[in-house]
């Protein structure tokens, strides 16, 4: 309930932020929404030397589409903004489905999508969403900007690919090549709980065929898992009971769950397959 001591910096610009990160290196920890970091500090599971609070940097709270349809979510865009977003409701079914399932209303007021992905908790939902959509993160550091594909961003539980002097500036979802459908299904023991198992499903269809598919799994491995083979089983053909079943089996096989008090490994695999069947059956309806 009482964090350890730390230094505190609140830069007002990206330049100022850069020089702070340069100065503190590994000792610095970025504070955005703080809804994962502050609880860990309260329990003293985390004790950063210096906290660099980016909330005072203007212009990072956006989520917007480029003219080509690319979606960009800024580092300070809160979950609640995405939950209420008309843009997502109209054009991004998977994101719109996932946003209200993050934690609880008060956490959503403060927490950010980008921060959640950076946190690299294998039970985090947004990383699966980004994986399924084939998105990437944009990092900003002294050497400028670079993009990191969603599949390369998380290196394991609570470890990401950012350098100590980099911050994640935005999450980017590429423009669709067909009609988007998809959803996020999450088995939670109670509302607001972390996923016992979660499945993000993103489809793009054109002329009745799936032209792009992404499936990613939450809470069933050391990181969020891109079920690439499962997704691939859907591409190039219309959605069918057979292809869905194939995807369900492949996704269950891709999961690497551990049994614990939330359920056995077999149960979690079974839930993954079930959610693929259910989620894609909905997608089938959308595509039809």
């Amino acid at each position: 309930m009482y964090p350890s001591k730390f230094g505190y910096e609140a830069p007002r610009s990206l330049d100022e932020l850069s020089s702070l990160l340069n100065r503190y290196g590994d000792d610095a920890k970025i504070l955005a929404g703080g809804q994962s970091l502050v609880p860990m500090m309260k329990l003293r599971f985390a004790a950063p030397e210096v906290l660099v609070d980016i909330n005072g940097i203007p212009g990072l709270d956006y989520h917007r589409e480029d003219p080509d349809g690319t979606l960009r979510v800024g580092a300070l865009c809160r979950h609640v903004t995405l939950e209420r977003s008309a843009l997502l409701a109209a054009k991004h079914p998977l994101m719109a489905a996932a946003a209200p399932l993050i934690a609880d209303p008060m956490v959503r007021s403060r927490g950010t999508m980008v921060g959640s992905i950076c946190h690299s908790d294998p039970q985090g939902d947004w990383a699966s969403v980004l994986l399924a959509l084939g998105g990437h993160m944009v990092a900003l550091g002294p050497r400028g900007r670079r993009t990191i594909a969603a599949g390369h961003f998380s290196l394991g539980p609570f470890q990401n690919a950012l350098q100590p002097d980099e911050i994640a500036l935005e999450a980017v979802i590429p423009a669709p090549t067909g009609q988007r459908s998809g959803t996020y299904l999450k088995l939670e023991r109670r509302v607001g709980d972390f996923a016992t198992a979660g499945v993000a499903m993103a489809l793009e269809t054109s002329d009745g065929r799936v032209v792009r598919a992404g499936i990613a799994l939450t809470g069933v491995g050391p990181s969020n898992i891109a079920a690439t083979e499962a997704a691939q089983a859907l591409v190039g053909k219309p959605l069918s009971e057979e292809s869905i079943e194939q995807a369900a089996q492949l996704a269950a096989a891709a999961a690497q769950p551990r049994g614990d008090h939330r359920g056995s490994a077999a149960f979690k695999r079974h839930v993954v397959a079930t959610f693929i069947r259910r989620g894609l059956a909905r997608g089938e309806a959308v595509a039809a």
């Binding site: 088995l187 023991r189 016992t196 551990r258 049994g259 614990d260 008090h261 939330r262 359920g263 056995s264 490994a265 149960f267 079974h270």
Partner: peptide, 25 residues
């Protein structure tokens, strides 16, 4: 009566104990 316990009961047709220690795996 957790979901995984119900599912296990449906699969195995056996009673499901919840006594500690919690099972891993």
């Amino acid at each position: 009566v957790l979901p995984d316990r119900v599912w296990t009961a449906l699969q195995t047709h056996q009673d499901v104990s919840g006594a500690p220690p919690v099972r891993n795996g």
